[in-house]
Design a protein around this nucleic acid. Structure first.
Lengths: 125, 125
DNA sequence: CTTGCCCCTGACGTCAACGTCAGCTTTTAG
DNA sequence: CTAAAAGCTGACGTTGACGTCAGGGGCAAG
């Protein structure tokens, strides 16, 4: 079943990727510079991406929002691209997951503090 | 009942505040520079804090962790210090609360993404 | 042809909460 | 009394994900 699929995939330029993912063109270039995203080049030197680049960029944004650095993301990319992982990567995945969970707990505590203040100030106009 | 309470409150120096709150001395000075914390001065110029400075610093940390800037915190301090607030402040409180909640949602989504990957990679060793 | 739009490569600027170093004074422990 | 510990005031350095500016190319429409 795994045939060498050379079915001329439609390639898009950087502007379309940026608009599609809701980020700046500068950001997309930055991702490539960090090794997060690879692009072919047109004869004139323009970057050409496969459409899945858009969802990848969205994913990067989500991970950035969760506090992962681009370095960490590059280290963990093999976990998606290949379904394959070694022990180190699995450990890193869990570490990041736990870090995110801890952050969630902190934020909920902070939110509750603000809710208290809001409740009080609403009673003291 | 509201007597001018001059009951010689025990004052502490910056080191004790820092250790008590689990931050660096530099951080405490920074908070003063940003207008978050006020300190008396000893004749020789050393900062003297009331003990509640420690819990205040802890609170700052919590707000920082929630993504508030020192500027925002200064703007919202009156909501604690006095029980008094104006409309702008109440609006800002709610805005920050909602921002935090949105961040929580983002983090939970990110965590779930990682959980998926973890589940998959655990089945493909 | 030229106008406009998109793309390219550097490379410096930004922002926030501190870290760190220098050089000096004060307080404390023995 | 003396040395270590703690404080003080500048002031520059750090980190990450971009923003922004300079200077230049290429290509389709009018």
């Amino acid at each position: 079943m795994t045939v060498t699929e050379t079915a001329t995939e439609r390639l898009v330029r950087i502007g379309e990727v940026a608009r599609g993912a809701g980020v700046s063109v500068r950001a997309v270039r930055y991702y490539e510079q960090q090794g997060l995203l690879v692009a072919e080049r047109s004869p004139s030197g323009q970057r050409l991406y496969r459409q899945d680049a858009i969802s990848r960029v969205r994913f990067f944004q989500q991970m950035f929002a969760a506090g992962l650095t681009s370095r960490r993301i590059t280290e963990l990319m093999p976990c998606w691209d290949a379904g394959h992982t070694d022990a180190d990567q699995r450990a890193m995945l869990r570490a990041e997951r736990d870090r995110i969970q801890a952050k969630i707990d902190d934020l909920q505590a902070a939110r509750d503090r603000l809710d208290e203040v809001i409740a009080i100030t609403d009673n003291h106009p």
